[in-house]
């Protein structure tokens, strides 16, 4: 794997990450169960990292490897630090099933492991590359409220 922390994103503010990591022999089923449990949990641990737009884990090749992709705001380094600091248990529960996982903490070996397994995208497209997660959420909130306001003005008085 190309040893590069480089993102395949051509955009200034948004970074993409694609990680391909081999799953330990025979642990794919257990991993799938962990992921399923996270999926149906009320609150995703990912939510704690407020810079992630989208993220997914996919088990590939009949359990041979795990794919992780995400799109996030800011730099690669800061993003990884967030991961390591905010949801170390979650990461351990997932990537602990992968070969060579050093643990989400301390930071340096974790960073090295991610670096080693990252593949930069050859082509990356973002529909609104200049917006951070918070900006998007904020704008959506504005829209919802504005709509309600404009509609209140428009509504005819109800007859009943």
């Amino acid at each position: 794997m190309s040893p590069s922390a480089e993102s395949g994103s051509p955009y200034e503010n948004i970074t993409e990450m694609t990680l391909l990591t081999p799953i330990k022999d025979g642990e794919a089923d257990e991993l799938a169960q962990v992921l399923a449990a996270v999926q149906i949990a009320e609150d995703s641990p990912i939510k704690k990292i407020s810079t992630i737009h989208y993220a997914r884990w996919v088990i590939l090749d009949e359990g041979a490897r795990l794919l992780f992709t995400s799109n996030f705001d800011g730099t690669w380094e800061k993003y990884l630090r967030d991961f390591s600091e905010k949801i170390p248990e979650g990461l351990d529960a997932i990537w602990g099933h992968c070969v060579g996982w050093p643990g989400a903490q301390p930071f340096a070996p974790f960073r090295k492991w991610v670096d080693r397994h990252q593949v930069p995208a050859n082509l990356f497209y973002a529909a609104y590359p200049e917006s951070t997660v918070r900006e998007v959420q904020r704008a959506l909130d504005w829209k919802e409220k504005t709509e309600r306001f404009v509609a209140e003005l428009a509504k005819p008085p109800r007859s009943s």
Partner: peptide, 19 residues
């Protein structure tokens, strides 16, 4: 296996229009 969105209620169009 696991899919996350920070703003599940929004279509791409919703975001563009909100912004």
């Amino acid at each position: 296996n696991y899919y996350y969105s920070a703003y599940p209620m929004a279509a791409s169009n919703d975001i563009k229009s909100s912004k």
